[in-house]
């Protein structure tokens, strides 16, 4: 096979292209200002103060006001995290309430539309085992992406009442 002109010149054109390409080596990336538009990062209600997470908690906030104190926490567990009934009864136990059975569970929990059909809310009053004070607990359990998310607002009943709306509003963004 006899080489054509194009075949003879091809390697030379390649060489020339490479040498031009080498010129780009001097073009280091310059550090410059960048602008990004990103989805808004959720921020908690202003009355919540950032606190140190306790045990397996992922995040914790504390709220102090003239009418009492409360804490807000988020815990994420693998799978169903012990199941709805088990966790509802655990929370009830923290306030000294009798456990529910499977049959009465339905009446003890409510759905939360903003968090999807899987989300369940529990709102209970009792006496805290730890402080022996009147306490209210608003808890939300959501199963999502092979994980279960436990959101809990617990504290003085009057303060929990005042914070409940803000708590429920923040939950869809709090991940």
């Amino acid at each position: 096979m006899r080489p054509t002109n194009a075949m003879t010149n091809l390697p030379r054109i390649f060489c020339l292209g490479l040498l031009v390409g080498l010129g780009f080596l001097g073009c280091e990336k310059a550090e410059k200002i960048e602008v990004h538009t990103i989805p808004a990062e959720p921020s908690p209600p202003e009355s919540w103060g950032l606190d140190s997470p306790f045990g397996p908690e992922k995040a914790r906030f504390s709220i102090s006001a003239t009418n009492g104190m409360a804490t807000v926490s988020l815990t994420v567990l693998q799978g169903d995290g012990g199941g709805l009934l088990g966790n509802v009864n655990r929370w009830r136990g923290q306030l000294g309430l009798e456990p529910l059975d499977e049959a009465s569970l339905g009446s003890g929990v409510q759905s939360v539309n903003s968090l999807g059909s899987e989300a369940r809310l529990i709102d209970i009053n009792g006496t805290s085992n730890r402080t022996q004070l009147d306490t209210r607990l608003v808890g939300v359990i959501v199963s999502r992406n092979e994980l279960t998310w436990f959101y809990k607002l617990m504290g003085t009943p009057e303060l929990v009442e005042a914070e409940k709306a803000g708590f429920l509003k923040y939950l869809p963004d709090w991940r």
Binding site: E31, K32, I33, H36, T37, P39
Partner: peptide, 13 residues
Amino acid sequence: GGSNRVVSIPEIM
């Protein structure tokens, strides 16, 4: 609105 504009200034500046 529902987004954040982020202006990122490199530390070198």
